[in-house]
Design a protein around this nucleic acid. Structure first.
Lengths: 347, 347
DNA sequence: TTGTAAGCGTTATCAG
DNA sequence: CTGATAACGCTTACAA
């Protein structure tokens, strides 16, 4: 931890401690502990209790969570690891976590897997006696098991037999997107997704693929393109896909960032959306409504996922075994990037 | 902190401690401390040292940062408070902080002022013996002084005599935006900004106002509209501003989110950008390049601000007095939302 | 009802 | 060079 050569520490400030309060109230220090943090059942004379509380207030006493953590072996803090903070979707997840965590007096240690490896993050978290960790969209299988062994973990969008977690209905999201396009009359639909083996991406893709297969219009191999789940990725993939004259009349993207990139590619290539091409995204990040036309997408409740995961972790910490929650519902948000295909094709 | 009724704690896991290592190596526990965390200058017999290290490795020893924090009175963690995580600009700032913090073994406690008040965040942070805190774009003046008193704080975009900090050249950003429009030939320029008294917003506005005044085309009172620094805010403000037939030929917005909202308003009102109206934003968030036409904006190095603030805080913690860094440069990113006014007006 | 004693896992100060 | 011994601030039996 931050060894670095010869780190001078800032002059230790005299902190108000329980001893100070005790002295001032003329009682023993443990009694102060009892009164201040103690359960309501603690039998303490009303008079002393009042005296202690007064003393504490006057001195501006603040409990030292670190000391509490050391003796209680829990730090009232949780880590949250996300694949990439720069994707607004994950920001929302974190936001949701923070809301409930902060509400319960828990601190949130932020970990961006794009900056530092998950392993290192977990190491750092464990060293800090973290109470638990929420891991978003990172296959638990991909991190060595013993790293997770003595940790309370809750998974988001990465179902596992070993750990509790919450997930969105990713396959449903894919299906919703595909069915929307089918209903509009599209018969030639492409898919842009990452090669990443993330559960949510896999399931979204599966949902799309199956819906199309069920409808008798399976994705042609060439219409399924892989790229990074970023705007650039989406843009590049769309570009190659649309370069051919006989490209699909619609595409669904694994997430909004890719979809936004695809829209950009269209703008550049002079392909009119939705007239010449329909585009559907997934996530429903804020930006989806900022572009014109607004992105049709599948809404995934990011903050809800985060909040729920946090609540679940809190439960685990309280000893209540977290029961597997059923997937959070997603819903189609039809906006401006989808329309019937220009020339109705033969079904 | 997290009092809640009767919280059962999870069964304390047997952790490998220095004592264990000491026992195994047949030495005293403090010696282990010396060897493991000790400075390279610690004079310890090579043999014992090796024995201890071996024992530690075999047992899988991990230092307990909480214990360290208690005795050293520093927790190797820092808080970062941002006004609103949902603004990608702040996400980037946090990202920058995290990168350098994590690199130095520091944990980042995330605090979203949109979720919980700054006061509560600071309380929670202090209770955790945080080593320092980075506060972004929140007037230090707006939080009661004694809350900050015994804290190491570094401010971002909120210059203060009392605390070190980093800032972007906010006035320069405003000027750049205005001058760009002037150079294009605009003589009727409006401004959309928040009523918030945030330093950066104030300075950006000042930069715009002065540049226009200097050019002899001051903003008309009606062309200066206030709204929340969000897409909705920008959208609403733009809508009213553009409702009048004789509206400005160009507007600059306090940040990209507002600008994006303004673009949306234009799209809805059927105002062609940049033909009928030029729009300039500020921040250069990723979304700026995702809309079509791409948003002309002033690039502000968000991650740079975060990284620099973190480095500065680290310095403060080491005892090196942080000297005031000069403002980080901003630069104009000319893209698609600006063009000469349709009808050249009389200068 | 309240005080005493014993740690939690480290670091730090000093005698051996 | 090494190893007791004392904190750090708090919780938690156990006595008084």
């Amino acid at each position: 931890m931050a060894q670095g050569p010869e780190r001078k520490r800032t002059p230790p400030r005299p902190r108000v401690t329980m001893r100070d309060v005790a002295r001032r109230a003329g009682v023993s220090q443990p009694l102060v502990s009892l009164v201040i943090a103690g359960s309501p059942t603690a039998r303490v004379a009303e008079a002393t209790r009042a005296r202690i509380l007064a003393a504490a207030r006057e001195l501006g006493y603040r409990p030292n969570v670190v000391a509490q953590a050391l003796v209680q072996r829990r730090s009232y803090s949780m880590g949250v690891i996300v694949p990439d903070l720069r994707n607004p979707f994950f920001t929302d997840v974190v936001s949701g976590v923070e809301r409930v965590a902060a509400g319960q007096g828990y601190a949130v240690l932020l970990c961006d897997a794009a900056e530092v490896t998950v392993e290192r993050h977990l190491d750092a978290l464990r060293a800090r006696q973290i109470d638990g960790v929420i891991i978003d969209a990172i296959g638990a299988a991909s991190v060595s098991a013993d790293l997770l062994a003595d940790l309370n973990v809750v998974l988001i969008d990465a179902p596992s037999a070993a750990f509790p977690g919450v997930a969105s209905d990713a396959a449903g999201a894919g299906r919703l997107a595909a069915e929307h396009l089918l209903k509009l009359g599209h018969r030639r639909i492409g898919y842009l997704g990452p090669a990443s083996d993330t559960w949510a991406f896999r399931m979204r893709e599966r949902g799309v693929v199956q819906a199309l297969r069920d409808a008798g219009v399976p994705i042609r191999p060439d219409d399924l393109r892989r790229a990074a789940p970023t705007p650039d990725g989406g843009r590049g993939a769309a570009k190659t896909l649309l370069a051919r004259p006989d490209h699909p009349t619609a595409i669904v993207c694994a997430n909004d960032l890719m979809a936004l990139g695809a829209l950009k590619a269209c703008a550049i290539a002079g392909i009119a959306v939705p007239a010449d091409l329909s585009v559907v995204g997934c996530d429903d990040i804020e930006t989806a409504r900022l572009v014109t036309p607004e992105l049709t997408t599948v809404h995934v409740p990011a903050r809800g996922l985060g909040a729920r995961a946090a609540r679940m972790l809190l439960q685990v910490l309280e000893g209540t075994p977290a029961r597997a929650a059923k997937p959070l519902e997603v819903r189609l948000a039809v906006r401006g990037t989808t329309a019937p295909p220009r020339l109705p094709e033969a079904g």
